[in-house]
Amino acid sequence: MQLTRRQQEIYQILRDNLDHYQQPPTYDELCGLLGLKSRGSLHKHIQALVEAGLVEPMAGLKRGIRLVEPGAEEGIPYLGRIAAGRPIEAIAEAEPMQVPDQLLGKGPCYVLQVSGDSMIDDGIQDGDYVVIEQQAQAQNGDIVVALIRNEEATLKRIEQRPGEVILHPANPAMSAMVYRAEEVRIQGVLRGLLRSYI
């Protein structure tokens, strides 16, 4: 689920003020932080954050909500392998995997294992695990999970131009892949990397 700018702002305020409040802020305190006059409009945004799994209601308490920490003990979903070479499909296995909080983005995240060597000049090697923040937009130059023609997913550095998307490898032996804009959907942006030396 894609958050609106306002919902992202509310979530960021909750994260930024985690240490400030001994208990989660009340709706009135949140309204004050955001400059909102109505609790009604705030409630709609909070409900979207609950549905996204970023906050949870606190039953029976006036204070309403608290953050769901993304690095909680259950881990984040491991969704299989993704190509960093020729595109292959990312397969949903949804096993939980432990990831340090420092490697997580602000929104929901998942882990994929890299297959291939097209991103080696960016330090991403075959067998590495990448932590991806789930989102549908990216900045030019971001390393993204791109779904191509609703069939195959690949890990590449993205360049977006009017009407086209270019997916750049980080390996001089490989060529960039050029697609029509409607053929590519961004599924997330790289936030962290895990590697085993065993």
Results as ranks from 00 to 15, higher is better:
92 A>Q: 09
93 E>S: 10
94 A>V: 00
96 P>D: 05
97 M>P: 01
97 M>G: 01
98 Q>R: 13
101 D>T: 11
103 L>W: 01
103 L>H: 02
104 L>E: 08
105 G>V: 05
105 G>E: 07
107 G>L: 15
107 G>H: 09
109 C>V: 04
109 C>Y: 07
110 Y>F: 12
111 V>C: 08
111 V>G: 04
112 L>T: 08
113 Q>T: 15
114 V>P: 02
115 S>N: 11
116 G>I: 03
117 D>V: 05
118 S>R: 10
119 M>A: 02
119 M>H: 03
121 D>N: 10
121 D>G: 02
123 G>D: 12
123 G>P: 13
124 I>C: 01
125 Q>R: 10
125 Q>A: 11
125 Q>V: 11
126 D>T: 00
127 G>Y: 10
128 D>V: 03
129 Y>K: 12
131 V>N: 05
132 I>R: 08
132 I>S: 07
132 I>K: 08
133 E>V: 13
138 A>C: 11
139 Q>E: 08
141 G>W: 01
144 V>N: 04
144 V>G: 09
144 V>E: 09
145 V>N: 12
145 V>S: 13
147 L>R: 14
148 I>E: 14
150 N>R: 14
151 E>D: 15
153 A>I: 09
155 L>E: 07
155 L>I: 05
155 L>Q: 05
155 L>N: 12
157 R>D: 00
157 R>T: 01
158 I>C: 01
158 I>Y: 00
159 E>G: 05
159 E>D: 05
160 Q>D: 00
161 R>T: 06
161 R>D: 09
162 P>M: 09
163 G>Q: 13
165 V>H: 00
165 V>G: 00
165 V>D: 00
167 L>F: 07
168 H>S: 03
169 P>H: 14
170 A>L: 04
171 N>S: 07
